[in-house]
């Protein structure tokens, strides 16, 4: 480096600024890259770093870490990063259906297709996926009347945490996943609305 260049870098504010920009940009890229890599490998936060558990408490030593428990399960992109229905159906997990010996376990295989979804896809509600996890009484008649269209369902209610939003957005897949419920193409729909056998 000759003396003119040396002088430039030592004294020119513009050169300093340029150097600074390059340095900071590189650092930022490095940091974001590391975060993306870390997220892809294991998206679950460890308990001691989750902002809820007290790292000084005894629990951290004893409790199972989400990353260890959930990593073998079918991967989702939201919520717990687990496709819970698939996990159940493929037998990766076998959660108990009951504790009390006399509890009646009911699974209903009945779909409902709902119209009146504005200009968006119609909704297909699968009873099966829901009753594999839940009891009939969890929804009927506490949240929804048993009769088809006996309850007016609205996205306003759902977004407030009522109706479907009682679980979706809190514990089951969140409300960002529009198309998982709004799954029936309304433009090319030739079927009928309402309760119906599951299309095979």
């Amino acid at each position: 480096m000759n003396s003119a260049d040396d002088n430039l870098y030592r004294n020119s504010p513009r050169a300093w600024s340029l150097l600074g920009r390059v340095w900071v940009l590189g650092l930022l890229l490095l940091l974001s890259g590391a975060q993306v890599l870390a997220g892809e490998a294991n998206p679950w936060v460890r308990l001691e770093a989750d902002g809820l558990h007290d790292p000084k408490g005894g629990a951290i030593r004893d409790l199972q870490q989400p990353g260890e428990a959930l990593a073998p399960l079918p991967r989702d992109v939201v919520g717990n990063m687990v496709r819970w229905v698939e996990a159940l159906r493929t037998g990766v997990i076998t959660p108990r259906t009951n504790i009390l010996p006399d509890t009646k376990i009911q699974v209903l295989d009945l779909d409902i297709i709902y119209p009146n979804t504005g200009n968006y896809n119609f909704v297909r509600f699968p009873h099966k996926a829901h009753t594999e996890w839940l009891d009939c009484s969890n929804c009927h008649d506490a949240i929804f009347a048993k009769k088809y269209r006996g309850t007016t369902i609205s996205m306003a209610n759902i977004l407030e945490g009522r109706q479907c939003g009682q679980c979706h957005g809190a514990v089951s897949f969140p409300l960002t996943e529009c198309n998982r419920c709004h799954s029936v193409d309304s433009q090319n729909f030739a079927g009928k609305f309402g309760p119906q056998p599951v299309a095979k």
Binding site: P95, R96, T97, N98, T103, N138
Partner: peptide, 13 residues
């Protein structure tokens, strides 16, 4: 929920 379905706590219990 890895070990119990929702209905155990939210229905039985």
């Amino acid at each position: 929920r890895m070990r119990f379905r929702c209905k155990v706590c939210h229905s039985e219990l």
